[in-house]
């Protein structure tokens, strides 16, 4: 998170100076802060609604049923989470919301899945393999019904707004599978390389970069 922020800010400032956009970037600082709050506010309603509905579905046992259906596949994708049982229901619910195209519901569900996974995490400072896989899967779109996209195509005067649906499905599926496999591959590699030596290295570089500033 800190690294991401540092990289974004330093690149923007370097670019702003070289292209003479510094005024626009200064304005962006204030605009960005305001945007963040309006984004959170616009999210708040959906967050409350879907967290509430999720709790009702869980109380009624619907989530458990759903996770029983999805378990055979997802157990292989998130082995540690299914072993501990902490967060597996939330993962099922979040992915279902993604697939059904209820993106607003997916975010709060995904957040509570991450919370549960973190609660079961033995090393609180290091993200588990399953957490990373889940984030990668969330970042690849699994939407079965890209309604916004179709609406945009229709507005642009497309003769066949749905024409793209099959390639979208193929592409989404391939990307999701590739994401899971790559994430597992990286997790395997990082287990072989001792974590300490890498961490030191990164910290050293960051420190040097800060001194230069």
């Amino acid at each position: 998170m800190e690294k991401c922020f540092f990289i974004l800010v330093s690149i923007s400032i370097i670019f702003a100076i070289s292209t003479g956009n510094l005024q626009a970037v200064s304005n962006a600082v204030v605009d960005g802060a305001a945007k963040a709050i309006s984004l959170v506010l616009s999210l708040a309603g959906a967050m409350c609604l879907w967290s509430g509905i999720m709790e009702v579905l869980r109380e009624a046992g619907a989530v458990q049923k759903l996770s029983r259906i999805l378990s055979p596949i997802l157990r292989r994708v998130f082995p540690k989470t299914w072993e501990s049982g902490q967060g597996s229901e939330e993962i099922c619910a979040a992915l279902s919301a993604n697939i059904l195209g209820i993106g607003n519901a997916a975010t709060p569900l995904a957040l509570s899945a991450m919370e549960k996974m973190q609660a079961a995490n033995p090393n609180k400072e290091r993200a588990t393999d399953d957490m990373v896989t889940f984030a990668v899967l969330g970042a690849s779109s699994l939407d079965l019904l890209p309604t916004t996209l179709i609406a945009l195509r229709r507005t642009a005067g497309s003769a066949a707004p749905y024409k793209i649906i099959l390639p979208v499905w193929i592409c989404s599926l391939v990307c999701a599978v590739a994401g899971v496999l790559l994430s597992k591959l990286c997790a395997g590699i990082s287990r072989k390389v001792p974590a300490k030596s890498r961490k030191k290295n990164v910290k050293g570089i960051m420190r040097k970069a800060e001194q230069h500033d």
């Binding site: 919370e115 973190q118 290091r126 984030a135 969330g138 690849s140 890209p146 990286c186």
Partner: peptide, 27 residues
């Protein structure tokens, strides 16, 4: 557009759910 997502936003938001974790590893 249909098969990708705003990955920087999604990953950052997801990891705010995992309080205490430092870094997102290979995400």
């Amino acid at each position: 557009m249909g098969s990708s997502d705003t990955l920087i936003y999604v990953i950052s938001v997801y990891f705010t759910g995992a309080k205490g974790v430092r870094g997102t590893r290979h995400a």
